[in-house]
Design a protein around this nucleic acid. Sequence first.
DNA 1: AGCGATATTTAGCAGATGATCAAATACGAT
DNA 2: ATCGTATTTGATCATCTGCTAAATATCGCT
Lengths: 229, 229
Amino acid sequence: MPADSSATKARILAAGERLFAESGFEAVSLRGVAREADVQIALVHYHFGSKEGLYKAVWAQRYAGLADLRQARLPTVDFDRERVAVLRDLVDLFVTPLMAGPDAHRFLKIMAHEYADPREPERGVVKAYIDPVTRQLLDAFRKALPGLADADVGWGYQAMTGALMMNVVDVDRATRLTGGAARSGDTKAALPALREFIVGGWLALADRRQAGGSAQDAAEGETRQALPE
Amino acid sequence: MPADSSATKARILAAGERLFAESGFEAVSLRGVAREADVQIALVHYHFGSKEGLYKAVWAQRYAGLADLRQARLPTVDFDRERVAVLRDLVDLFVTPLMAGPDAHRFLKIMAHEYADPREPERGVVKAYIDPVTRQLLDAFRKALPGLADADVGWGYQAMTGALMMNVVDVDRATRLTGGAARSGDTKAALPALREFIVGGWLALADRRQAGGSAQDAAEGETRQALPE
DNA sequence: AGCGATATTTAGCAGATGATCAAATACGAT
DNA sequence: ATCGTATTTGATCATCTGCTAAATATCGCT
Protein backbone atom coordinates (compact mmCIF):
# COMPACT_ATOMS: atom_id res chain seq x y z
CA MET A 1 0.00 0.00 0.00
CA PRO A 2 1.43 3.30 -1.13
CA ALA A 3 2.10 6.45 0.83
CA ASP A 4 1.51 6.77 4.55
CA SER A 5 -2.19 7.41 4.23
CA SER A 6 -2.84 6.70 7.89
CA ALA A 7 -0.62 9.57 8.96
CA THR A 8 -2.35 12.20 6.84
CA LYS A 9 -5.72 10.75 7.68
CA ALA A 10 -4.92 11.10 11.35
CA ARG A 11 -3.72 14.65 10.75
CA ILE A 12 -7.00 15.56 9.11
CA LEU A 13 -8.94 13.91 11.92
CA ALA A 14 -6.99 15.82 14.53
CA ALA A 15 -7.44 19.10 12.71
CA GLY A 16 -11.15 18.48 12.44
CA GLU A 17 -11.42 17.62 16.09
CA ARG A 18 -9.65 20.81 17.08
CA LEU A 19 -11.83 23.04 14.91
CA PHE A 20 -15.09 21.28 15.75
CA ALA A 21 -14.30 21.74 19.42
CA GLU A 22 -13.69 25.43 18.90
CA SER A 23 -16.67 26.25 16.75
CA GLY A 24 -19.10 23.37 16.42
CA PHE A 25 -20.07 21.48 13.30
CA GLU A 26 -21.73 24.18 11.20
CA ALA A 27 -19.22 26.93 11.78
CA VAL A 28 -16.30 24.80 10.63
CA SER A 29 -15.38 24.89 6.95
CA LEU A 30 -13.60 22.07 5.21
CA ARG A 31 -11.22 24.65 3.86
CA GLY A 32 -10.28 25.51 7.40
CA VAL A 33 -9.73 21.87 8.20
CA ALA A 34 -7.63 21.41 5.08
CA ARG A 35 -5.48 24.41 5.91
CA GLU A 36 -5.07 23.28 9.52
CA ALA A 37 -4.05 19.81 8.38
CA ASP A 38 -1.88 21.17 5.56
CA VAL A 39 -3.76 19.15 2.99
CA GLN A 40 -5.94 19.67 -0.06
CA ILE A 41 -9.68 19.93 0.47
CA ALA A 42 -10.44 17.01 -1.80
CA LEU A 43 -8.39 14.77 0.40
CA VAL A 44 -10.80 15.23 3.23
CA HIS A 45 -13.54 13.88 1.00
CA TYR A 46 -11.33 11.08 -0.18
CA HIS A 47 -10.68 9.86 3.35
CA PHE A 48 -13.96 10.67 5.06
CA GLY A 49 -16.51 11.02 2.28
CA SER A 50 -18.07 14.22 3.54
CA LYS A 51 -17.91 16.85 6.25
CA GLU A 52 -20.40 14.83 8.25
CA GLY A 53 -18.26 11.76 7.68
CA LEU A 54 -15.27 13.51 9.20
CA TYR A 55 -17.39 14.67 12.10
CA LYS A 56 -18.70 11.21 12.78
CA ALA A 57 -15.20 9.80 12.52
CA VAL A 58 -14.20 12.10 15.35
CA TRP A 59 -17.11 10.79 17.38
CA ALA A 60 -16.31 7.20 16.59
CA GLN A 61 -12.75 7.74 17.69
CA ARG A 62 -13.33 9.73 20.85
CA TYR A 63 -16.69 8.83 22.28
CA ALA A 64 -15.78 5.27 23.11
CA GLY A 65 -13.15 6.53 25.52
CA LEU A 66 -15.56 8.75 27.37
CA ALA A 67 -18.24 6.09 27.43
CA ASP A 68 -15.87 3.47 28.74
CA LEU A 69 -14.77 5.74 31.53
CA ARG A 70 -18.34 5.86 32.69
CA GLN A 71 -19.51 2.37 31.91
CA ALA A 72 -16.51 0.72 33.47
CA ARG A 73 -17.13 2.46 36.77
CA LEU A 74 -20.89 2.07 36.84
CA PRO A 75 -20.91 -1.57 38.02
CA THR A 76 -18.51 -0.69 40.83
CA VAL A 77 -20.94 1.75 42.42
CA ASP A 78 -22.29 0.43 45.69
CA PHE A 79 -25.92 1.42 45.97
CA ASP A 80 -26.25 0.11 49.54
CA ARG A 81 -24.97 3.24 51.13
CA GLU A 82 -26.10 6.59 52.31
CA ARG A 83 -28.00 8.32 49.52
CA VAL A 84 -25.51 11.17 49.41
CA ALA A 85 -22.56 8.87 48.99
CA VAL A 86 -24.15 7.05 46.06
CA LEU A 87 -25.08 10.35 44.45
CA ARG A 88 -21.56 11.65 44.80
CA ASP A 89 -20.25 8.61 43.02
CA LEU A 90 -22.77 8.88 40.21
CA VAL A 91 -22.22 12.57 39.66
CA ASP A 92 -18.52 11.94 39.75
CA LEU A 93 -19.01 9.28 37.13
CA PHE A 94 -20.86 11.76 34.99
CA VAL A 95 -18.58 14.69 35.42
CA THR A 96 -15.00 13.55 35.85
CA PRO A 97 -14.34 12.70 32.19
CA LEU A 98 -13.83 16.47 32.02
CA MET A 99 -10.47 16.07 33.64
CA ALA A 100 -9.34 13.00 31.74
CA GLY A 101 -6.73 14.96 29.84
CA PRO A 102 -6.96 17.61 27.14
CA ASP A 103 -8.28 15.17 24.55
CA ALA A 104 -11.34 14.34 26.60
CA HIS A 105 -11.94 17.96 27.37
CA ARG A 106 -11.71 18.89 23.72
CA PHE A 107 -14.20 16.25 22.79
CA LEU A 108 -16.49 17.37 25.58
CA LYS A 109 -16.59 20.74 23.91
CA ILE A 110 -17.73 19.00 20.76
CA MET A 111 -20.45 17.27 22.74
CA ALA A 112 -21.55 20.54 24.27
CA HIS A 113 -21.80 22.24 20.89
CA GLU A 114 -23.70 19.26 19.57
CA TYR A 115 -26.27 19.43 22.36
CA ALA A 116 -26.98 23.04 21.63
CA ASP A 117 -26.94 22.82 17.85
CA PRO A 118 -30.39 23.26 16.37
CA ARG A 119 -29.42 21.00 13.49
CA GLU A 120 -28.29 18.19 15.73
CA PRO A 121 -31.22 15.90 14.86
CA GLU A 122 -30.15 15.86 11.21
CA ARG A 123 -26.90 14.21 12.23
CA GLY A 124 -28.20 12.05 15.04
CA VAL A 125 -24.91 11.51 16.83
CA VAL A 126 -26.40 12.31 20.22
CA LYS A 127 -29.02 9.65 19.72
CA ALA A 128 -26.56 7.15 18.32
CA TYR A 129 -23.62 7.66 20.65
CA ILE A 130 -24.66 9.37 23.86
CA ASP A 131 -28.17 8.14 24.47
CA PRO A 132 -27.30 4.51 25.20
CA VAL A 133 -24.92 5.53 27.96
CA THR A 134 -27.33 8.13 29.21
CA ARG A 135 -30.04 5.51 29.63
CA GLN A 136 -27.77 3.54 31.88
CA LEU A 137 -27.00 6.59 33.96
CA LEU A 138 -30.68 7.46 34.15
CA ASP A 139 -31.33 4.00 35.51
CA ALA A 140 -28.57 4.47 38.03
CA PHE A 141 -30.00 7.75 39.29
CA ARG A 142 -33.44 6.19 39.42
CA LYS A 143 -32.01 3.41 41.51
CA ALA A 144 -30.18 5.81 43.79
CA LEU A 145 -33.28 7.92 44.38
CA PRO A 146 -36.13 5.41 44.43
CA GLY A 147 -38.74 7.89 45.56
CA LEU A 148 -38.17 10.23 42.63
CA ALA A 149 -40.72 10.31 39.82
CA ASP A 150 -39.48 9.29 36.38
CA ALA A 151 -40.16 12.75 35.02
CA ASP A 152 -38.07 14.35 37.75
CA VAL A 153 -35.19 11.99 37.03
CA GLY A 154 -35.36 13.29 33.49
CA TRP A 155 -35.43 16.92 34.53
CA GLY A 156 -32.64 16.36 37.00
CA TYR A 157 -30.49 14.74 34.38
CA GLN A 158 -31.22 17.55 31.98
CA ALA A 159 -30.28 20.15 34.57
CA MET A 160 -27.10 18.28 35.40
CA THR A 161 -26.13 18.06 31.76
CA GLY A 162 -26.86 21.72 31.20
CA ALA A 163 -24.81 22.83 34.18
CA LEU A 164 -21.83 20.89 32.90
CA MET A 165 -22.20 21.97 29.29
CA MET A 166 -22.51 25.63 30.09
CA ASN A 167 -19.21 25.41 31.88
CA VAL A 168 -17.59 23.77 28.90
CA VAL A 169 -19.01 26.15 26.31
CA ASP A 170 -18.20 29.34 28.15
CA VAL A 171 -15.14 31.06 26.73
CA ASP A 172 -14.78 34.19 28.79
CA ARG A 173 -18.05 35.15 30.41
CA ALA A 174 -17.33 33.74 33.84
CA THR A 175 -14.02 35.55 33.86
CA ARG A 176 -15.65 38.75 32.73
CA LEU A 177 -18.49 38.64 35.24
CA THR A 178 -16.49 37.65 38.29
CA GLY A 179 -13.61 39.98 37.56
CA GLY A 180 -11.27 37.02 37.28
CA ALA A 181 -12.30 35.23 40.47
CA ALA A 182 -13.63 32.40 38.33
CA ARG A 183 -11.67 31.89 35.13
CA SER A 184 -13.72 30.52 32.27
CA GLY A 185 -11.44 27.84 30.92
CA ASP A 186 -10.34 26.63 34.30
CA THR A 187 -12.42 23.49 34.60
CA LYS A 188 -10.10 22.11 37.23
CA ALA A 189 -11.17 24.92 39.53
CA ALA A 190 -14.80 24.77 38.52
CA LEU A 191 -15.25 21.04 38.86
CA PRO A 192 -15.55 20.75 42.66
CA ALA A 193 -18.12 23.52 42.76
CA LEU A 194 -19.97 22.06 39.83
CA ARG A 195 -20.09 18.63 41.38
CA GLU A 196 -21.32 19.99 44.67
CA PHE A 197 -24.00 22.01 42.92
CA ILE A 198 -25.25 19.01 41.01
CA VAL A 199 -25.33 16.67 44.00
CA GLY A 200 -27.21 19.30 45.95
CA GLY A 201 -29.62 19.68 43.06
CA TRP A 202 -30.42 15.98 43.00
CA LEU A 203 -30.91 15.86 46.76
CA ALA A 204 -33.25 18.82 46.72
CA LEU A 205 -35.20 17.25 43.90
CA ALA A 206 -35.54 14.02 45.84
CA ASP A 207 -36.71 15.86 48.95
CA ARG A 208 -39.13 18.07 47.10
CA ARG A 209 -42.34 16.75 48.67
CA GLN A 210 -41.49 17.26 52.31
CA ALA A 211 -39.43 20.41 51.79
CA GLY A 212 -40.61 24.01 51.63
CA GLY A 213 -42.45 25.71 54.50
CA SER A 214 -46.06 26.68 53.83
CA ALA A 215 -45.19 30.35 54.18
CA GLN A 216 -42.72 30.15 51.31
CA ASP A 217 -45.07 28.12 49.18
CA ALA A 218 -47.71 30.79 49.61
CA ALA A 219 -45.21 33.47 48.66
CA GLU A 220 -44.22 31.51 45.59
CA GLY A 221 -47.80 31.11 44.51
CA GLU A 222 -48.26 34.82 44.84
CA THR A 223 -45.09 35.47 42.89
CA ARG A 224 -46.14 33.33 40.02
CA GLN A 225 -49.58 34.83 39.76
CA ALA A 226 -48.24 38.35 39.87
CA LEU A 227 -46.24 37.87 36.70
CA PRO A 228 -47.67 39.53 33.59
CA GLU A 229 -49.19 37.70 30.63
CA MET B 1 -44.93 59.43 5.72
CA PRO B 2 -46.07 57.07 3.02
CA ALA B 3 -47.08 53.42 3.19
CA ASP B 4 -47.57 51.52 6.43
CA SER B 5 -43.93 50.81 6.89
CA SER B 6 -44.37 50.03 10.56
CA ALA B 7 -46.65 47.10 9.84
CA THR B 8 -44.32 45.36 7.42
CA LYS B 9 -41.36 46.18 9.62
CA ALA B 10 -43.11 44.54 12.52
CA ARG B 11 -43.96 41.56 10.34
CA ILE B 12 -40.32 41.10 9.42
CA LEU B 13 -39.29 41.46 13.04
CA ALA B 14 -41.79 38.83 14.12
CA ALA B 15 -40.73 36.45 11.39
CA GLY B 16 -37.11 36.89 12.37
CA GLU B 17 -37.87 36.31 16.02
CA ARG B 18 -39.70 33.10 15.23
CA LEU B 19 -36.92 31.71 13.04
CA PHE B 20 -34.09 32.84 15.31
CA ALA B 21 -35.82 31.08 18.20
CA GLU B 22 -36.10 27.87 16.21
CA SER B 23 -32.61 27.72 14.78
CA GLY B 24 -30.32 30.37 16.19
CA PHE B 25 -28.63 33.21 14.37
CA GLU B 26 -26.36 31.40 11.95
CA ALA B 27 -28.82 28.82 10.75
CA VAL B 28 -31.40 31.41 9.75
CA SER B 29 -31.30 32.74 6.20
CA LEU B 30 -32.64 36.12 5.21
CA ARG B 31 -34.49 34.36 2.42
CA GLY B 32 -36.29 32.32 5.02
CA VAL B 33 -37.19 35.44 6.95
CA ALA B 34 -38.37 37.17 3.78
CA ARG B 35 -40.54 34.22 2.83
CA GLU B 36 -41.96 33.94 6.34
CA ALA B 37 -42.78 37.64 6.36
CA ASP B 38 -44.02 37.57 2.77
CA VAL B 39 -41.61 40.30 1.75
CA GLN B 40 -38.68 40.86 -0.59
CA ILE B 41 -35.22 40.17 0.78
CA ALA B 42 -34.01 43.67 0.04
CA LEU B 43 -36.68 45.03 2.32
CA VAL B 44 -35.07 43.39 5.30
CA HIS B 45 -31.91 45.30 4.53
CA TYR B 46 -33.86 48.48 3.98
CA HIS B 47 -35.46 48.30 7.42
CA PHE B 48 -32.72 46.69 9.47
CA GLY B 49 -29.53 47.24 7.51
CA SER B 50 -28.23 43.70 7.86
CA LYS B 51 -29.00 40.28 9.24
CA GLU B 52 -27.23 41.24 12.41
CA GLY B 53 -29.27 44.43 12.49
CA LEU B 54 -32.49 42.43 12.42
CA TYR B 55 -31.18 40.16 15.12
CA LYS B 56 -30.24 43.03 17.37
CA ALA B 57 -33.61 44.64 16.74
CA VAL B 58 -35.23 41.52 18.14
CA TRP B 59 -33.03 41.80 21.20
CA ALA B 60 -33.76 45.47 21.64
CA GLN B 61 -37.46 44.78 21.48
CA ARG B 62 -37.66 41.72 23.70
CA TYR B 63 -34.84 41.82 26.19
CA ALA B 64 -36.10 44.87 27.98
CA GLY B 65 -39.23 42.96 28.97
CA LEU B 66 -37.30 40.08 30.45
CA ALA B 67 -34.88 42.37 32.20
CA ASP B 68 -37.63 44.47 33.69
CA LEU B 69 -39.32 41.38 35.06
CA ARG B 70 -36.19 40.66 36.99
CA GLN B 71 -35.01 44.10 37.88
CA ALA B 72 -38.40 45.24 39.10
CA ARG B 73 -38.60 42.36 41.56
CA LEU B 74 -35.02 42.48 42.75
CA PRO B 75 -35.49 45.40 45.16
CA THR B 76 -38.52 43.69 46.72
CA VAL B 77 -36.49 40.68 47.85
CA ASP B 78 -36.13 40.63 51.61
CA PHE B 79 -32.66 39.41 52.46
CA ASP B 80 -33.35 39.28 56.21
CA ARG B 81 -34.86 35.84 56.13
CA GLU B 82 -33.90 32.25 56.22
CA ARG B 83 -31.24 31.60 53.60
CA VAL B 84 -33.47 29.11 51.79
CA ALA B 85 -36.32 31.55 51.48
CA VAL B 86 -34.11 34.24 49.99
CA LEU B 87 -32.61 31.74 47.57
CA ARG B 88 -36.03 30.59 46.47
CA ASP B 89 -36.98 34.14 45.67
CA LEU B 90 -33.79 34.80 43.73
CA VAL B 91 -33.99 31.61 41.73
CA ASP B 92 -37.61 32.35 41.05
CA LEU B 93 -36.58 35.76 39.85
CA PHE B 94 -34.09 34.17 37.52
CA VAL B 95 -36.26 31.42 36.21
CA THR B 96 -39.87 32.52 36.05
CA PRO B 97 -39.57 34.72 32.97
CA LEU B 98 -39.82 31.33 31.25
CA MET B 99 -43.51 31.29 31.98
CA ALA B 100 -44.28 34.88 31.13
CA GLY B 101 -46.16 33.91 28.03
CA PRO B 102 -45.11 32.45 24.68
CA ASP B 103 -43.27 35.61 23.63
CA ALA B 104 -40.92 35.43 26.58
CA HIS B 105 -40.36 31.75 26.08
CA ARG B 106 -39.58 32.25 22.41
CA PHE B 107 -37.04 34.90 23.24
CA LEU B 108 -35.54 32.70 25.91
CA LYS B 109 -34.84 30.18 23.19
CA ILE B 110 -32.99 32.90 21.33
CA MET B 111 -30.97 33.62 24.45
CA ALA B 112 -30.16 29.96 24.88
CA HIS B 113 -28.94 29.62 21.32
CA GLU B 114 -26.89 32.76 21.76
CA TYR B 115 -25.17 31.45 24.87
CA ALA B 116 -24.12 28.30 23.06
CA ASP B 117 -23.17 29.92 19.76
CA PRO B 118 -19.42 29.87 19.20
CA ARG B 119 -19.71 33.10 17.19
CA GLU B 120 -21.51 34.92 19.95
CA PRO B 121 -18.56 37.19 20.79
CA GLU B 122 -18.63 38.63 17.27
CA ARG B 123 -22.10 39.98 17.94
CA GLY B 124 -21.70 40.87 21.58
CA VAL B 125 -25.36 40.89 22.50
CA VAL B 126 -24.79 38.82 25.63
CA LYS B 127 -22.27 41.31 26.85
CA ALA B 128 -24.39 44.30 25.89
CA TYR B 129 -27.80 43.12 27.00
CA ILE B 130 -27.59 40.28 29.50
CA ASP B 131 -24.43 41.01 31.42
CA PRO B 132 -25.64 44.16 33.19
CA VAL B 133 -28.62 42.33 34.63
CA THR B 134 -26.49 39.31 35.44
CA ARG B 135 -24.15 41.45 37.48
CA GLN B 136 -27.03 42.58 39.63
CA LEU B 137 -28.17 39.00 40.13
CA LEU B 138 -24.64 37.93 40.96
CA ASP B 139 -24.54 40.61 43.64
CA ALA B 140 -27.85 39.38 44.97
CA PHE B 141 -26.63 35.80 45.25
CA ARG B 142 -23.43 37.00 46.85
CA LYS B 143 -25.50 38.89 49.36
CA ALA B 144 -27.76 35.91 50.01
CA LEU B 145 -24.82 33.58 50.58
CA PRO B 146 -22.23 35.74 52.31
CA GLY B 147 -19.88 32.86 53.07
CA LEU B 148 -19.53 31.83 49.47
CA ALA B 149 -16.32 32.67 47.61
CA ASP B 150 -16.65 34.95 44.60
CA ALA B 151 -15.47 32.21 42.29
CA ASP B 152 -18.13 29.82 43.57
CA VAL B 153 -20.82 32.43 43.04
CA GLY B 154 -19.67 32.54 39.46
CA TRP B 155 -19.67 28.78 39.06
CA GLY B 156 -23.06 28.53 40.71
CA TYR B 157 -24.49 31.12 38.42
CA GLN B 158 -23.02 29.36 35.44
CA ALA B 159 -24.48 26.02 36.52
CA MET B 160 -27.86 27.63 37.12
CA THR B 161 -27.83 29.23 33.71
CA GLY B 162 -26.80 26.01 32.05
CA ALA B 163 -29.51 23.98 33.73
CA LEU B 164 -32.13 26.42 32.53
CA MET B 165 -30.76 26.73 29.02
CA MET B 166 -30.49 23.01 28.45
CA ASN B 167 -34.16 22.72 29.25
CA VAL B 168 -35.00 25.43 26.77
CA VAL B 169 -32.82 24.13 23.98
CA ASP B 170 -33.91 20.52 24.21
CA VAL B 171 -36.38 19.60 21.52
CA ASP B 172 -37.11 15.95 22.10
CA ARG B 173 -34.35 14.30 24.03
CA ALA B 174 -36.03 14.38 27.42
CA THR B 175 -39.14 12.86 25.91
CA ARG B 176 -37.09 10.22 24.15
CA LEU B 177 -35.02 9.25 27.17
CA THR B 178 -37.83 9.14 29.72
CA GLY B 179 -40.26 7.41 27.45
CA GLY B 180 -42.62 10.37 27.67
CA ALA B 181 -42.56 10.80 31.44
CA ALA B 182 -40.86 14.15 30.94
CA ARG B 183 -41.92 15.91 27.77
CA SER B 184 -39.25 18.14 26.28
CA GLY B 185 -41.23 21.24 25.44
CA ASP B 186 -43.26 21.16 28.63
CA THR B 187 -41.50 23.86 30.58
CA LYS B 188 -44.49 24.30 32.82
CA ALA B 189 -43.95 20.78 34.11
CA ALA B 190 -40.18 21.10 34.24
CA LEU B 191 -40.04 24.41 36.04
CA PRO B 192 -40.78 23.25 39.61
CA ALA B 193 -38.20 20.50 39.36
CA LEU B 194 -35.70 22.86 37.77
CA ARG B 195 -36.18 25.45 40.47
CA GLU B 196 -35.80 22.90 43.22
CA PHE B 197 -32.65 21.54 41.61
CA ILE B 198 -31.10 24.97 41.36
CA VAL B 199 -31.94 26.03 44.90
CA GLY B 200 -30.50 22.78 46.17
CA GLY B 201 -27.41 23.35 44.12
CA TRP B 202 -26.81 26.78 45.62
CA LEU B 203 -27.33 25.46 49.14
CA ALA B 204 -24.93 22.61 48.62
CA LEU B 205 -22.38 25.01 47.22
CA ALA B 206 -22.73 27.27 50.22
CA ASP B 207 -22.31 24.36 52.64
CA ARG B 208 -19.37 22.89 50.80
CA ARG B 209 -16.76 23.39 53.53
CA GLN B 210 -18.50 21.59 56.36
CA ALA B 211 -20.19 18.98 54.16
CA GLY B 212 -18.82 15.63 52.98
CA GLY B 213 -17.61 12.90 55.34
CA SER B 214 -13.91 12.15 55.30
CA ALA B 215 -14.62 8.68 53.93
CA GLN B 216 -16.24 10.14 50.86
CA ASP B 217 -13.54 12.72 50.37
CA ALA B 218 -10.99 9.96 50.42
CA ALA B 219 -13.01 8.01 47.90
CA GLU B 220 -13.24 11.05 45.68
CA GLY B 221 -9.52 11.60 45.81
CA GLU B 222 -8.95 8.04 44.84
CA THR B 223 -11.45 8.32 42.01
CA ARG B 224 -9.78 11.32 40.54
CA GLN B 225 -6.32 9.84 40.67
CA ALA B 226 -7.48 6.60 39.11
CA LEU B 227 -8.59 8.33 35.93
CA PRO B 228 -6.33 7.79 32.90
CA GLU B 229 -4.16 10.42 31.23
C1' DA C 1 11.07 -1.89 -15.82
C1' DG C 2 6.45 -1.68 -15.70
C1' DC C 3 1.88 -2.68 -13.96
C1' DG C 4 -1.88 -1.84 -10.64
C1' DA C 5 -3.73 0.11 -6.72
C1' DT C 6 -3.73 3.64 -3.52
C1' DA C 7 -2.95 8.72 -2.39
C1' DT C 8 -2.78 13.30 -3.55
C1' DT C 9 -3.31 17.45 -6.31
C1' DT C 10 -5.46 20.54 -9.59
C1' DA C 11 -9.26 22.76 -11.23
C1' DG C 12 -13.76 23.68 -11.20
C1' DC C 13 -19.09 23.19 -10.44
C1' DA C 14 -23.55 24.09 -8.50
C1' DG C 15 -25.88 25.95 -4.87
C1' DA C 16 -26.74 29.07 -1.19
C1' DT C 17 -25.94 33.24 1.33
C1' DG C 18 -25.71 38.29 2.63
C1' DA C 19 -25.62 42.38 0.42
C1' DT C 20 -26.38 46.21 -3.11
C1' DC C 21 -28.28 49.27 -6.73
C1' DA C 22 -31.27 51.28 -9.83
C1' DA C 23 -35.79 51.46 -11.01
C1' DA C 24 -40.65 51.29 -9.84
C1' DT C 25 -44.44 52.26 -6.77
C1' DA C 26 -47.26 54.32 -3.14
C1' DC C 27 -48.33 57.95 -0.34
C1' DG C 28 -48.77 62.73 1.69
C1' DA C 29 -48.15 67.56 1.28
C1' DT C 30 -48.74 71.45 -1.69
C1' DA D 1 -52.82 67.34 -10.13
C1' DT D 2 -48.09 67.11 -9.01
C1' DC D 3 -43.98 66.96 -6.73
C1' DG D 4 -40.93 64.79 -3.36
C1' DT D 5 -40.00 61.42 -0.22
C1' DA D 6 -40.55 56.89 1.82
C1' DT D 7 -41.23 52.34 0.67
C1' DT D 8 -41.00 48.28 -2.22
C1' DT D 9 -39.44 45.57 -6.00
C1' DG D 10 -36.49 43.03 -9.29
C1' DA D 11 -32.19 41.76 -10.79
C1' DT D 12 -27.55 41.01 -9.82
C1' DC D 13 -22.85 40.65 -7.31
C1' DA D 14 -19.28 38.68 -4.88
C1' DT D 15 -18.28 35.26 -1.81
C1' DC D 16 -18.42 31.17 0.44
C1' DT D 17 -19.83 26.52 0.95
C1' DG D 18 -19.52 21.24 0.25
C1' DC D 19 -18.43 18.47 -3.26
C1' DT D 20 -16.62 16.10 -7.62
C1' DA D 21 -13.99 14.55 -11.84
C1' DA D 22 -9.93 14.09 -13.90
C1' DA D 23 -5.03 14.24 -13.94
C1' DT D 24 -0.85 13.19 -11.41
C1' DA D 25 2.15 11.16 -8.03
C1' DT D 26 3.69 7.38 -4.96
C1' DC D 27 4.34 2.96 -3.67
C1' DG D 28 4.30 -2.41 -3.70
C1' DC D 29 4.57 -6.16 -6.60
C1' DT D 30 6.10 -9.22 -10.38
